[in-house]
Amino acid sequence: MAAKKNWPLWEIFVRSKNGLEHRHFGSLHAADAEMALENARDVYTRRNEGVSIWVVESKNITASNPDNNGELFEPAQDKIYRHPTFYDLPDEVKHM
């Protein structure tokens, strides 16, 4: 027999109600996308936790490397002029 092929891993995203975004709930193994959806329904929405499910095969996700967090995220730290509090306005200015 050929080398045993295992069911691939899928990442599961669930929208808990309309108006909210899909959020990562966890992962599971399934033979294909359809089965991943069915299993996700059983594993992650047994108590009305969702109204919509996305499944993405885990190997299709590219993640940033925490080792690069410095160069990726630190530049935003000193850009305080991106925040409204950076700007000095007289107290008399209302609604701004």
Partner: peptide, 13 residues
């Protein structure tokens, strides 16, 4: 069952 599901998925793909 797991083998059959995998074979079916590959066939569909």
């Amino acid at each position: 069952v797991r083998d059959a599901a995998m074979a079916h998925a590959e066939k569909k793909e």
